[in-house]
């Protein structure tokens, strides 16, 4: 789902940085103020696990592949803001070490997956946890991933409107939402279900200190 460098217009990714920068600053202050030091080792291990999860490629029909996102695990274990920060770090490492995603598009990927994905996951979990906690986690992760995928598809889909060259060819990503939405969101409807189940399995063996913030 990561958007790589070079596909997004500068006005879009710079705008995303303008939104992400204060969000990161707020997250750092909130985490520094409220985060329990004793949770740092656990945060590190689960962040590393999320990083590894994002490298798990799932083969899809047509020869392409998708991958797990991993932010749901962090969100349910530590809350939205720690998950946002930790996942942003995961995105940086993916970009630098694996060539997945990019630095110019870091803010877009972080906002879509790290913040929106985490917030939706936690929000849905809180709504449904009293009914059935495991199902709430699975559904929360599923919806978080699907919403993040939808955002990514929409950001990609608007790129043809961002500019074209002298021959009328789009300067950036060339496919509109009619293509990106089914192609990006469709596979994640399935992948996210598996990720939701896997996330609950991991969390059920990890001791949680508190409900997501």
């Amino acid at each position: 789902m990561h958007i790589p460098d070079g596909l997004i217009a500068p006005q879009v990714y710079l705008g995303a940085y303008a939104v992400a920068a204060p969000a990161w600053a707020y997250a750092v202050r909130k985490v520094a103020r409220e985060f329990d030091d004793a949770l740092i080792p656990r945060l590190a291990v689960l962040t590393a696990l999320a990083f590894v999860l994002t490298t798990v490629m799932v083969p899809l029909p047509g020869g392409t592949s998708g991958h797990l996102v991993g932010v749901g695990l962090l969100a349910l274990a530590f809350g939205v803001w720690p998950a946002f920060l930790a996942y942003s770090l995961v995105l940086v490492l993916q970009s630098l070490l694996l060539g997945a995603g990019g630095i110019t598009v870091l803010a877009i990927n972080a906002l879509a997956m790290g913040l929106t994905g985490a917030a939706v996951t936690v929000g849905v979990f809180r709504l449904l946890a009293k009914v059935h906690r495991p199902a709430a986690a699975v559904i929360g992760v599923w919806l978080g991933v699907v919403v993040a995928a939808t955002l990514v598809a929409l950001v990609l889909g608007i790129q043809p409107l961002m500019g074209s060259d002298t021959e009328g060819q789009p300067l950036f990503f060339p496919f509109g939402p009619a293509v990106t939405l089914p192609v990006v969101v469709g596979p994640h409807l399935i992948i996210a279900l598996g990720e939701g189940i896997l996330t609950w399995m991991v969390l059920s063996v990890v001791e949680r200190r508190r409900v997501p913030a």
């Binding site: 740092i40 080792p41 945060l43 590190a44 291990v45 962040t47 590393a48 990083f51 590894v52 490298t55 770090l89 995961v90 490492l93 993916q94 070490l97 694996l98």
Partner: peptide, 14 residues
Amino acid sequence: NILAGVGYLLGLAG
């Protein structure tokens, strides 16, 4: 590179 990423994360936490 995956192992390096895990290492960096754990090292940063330390």
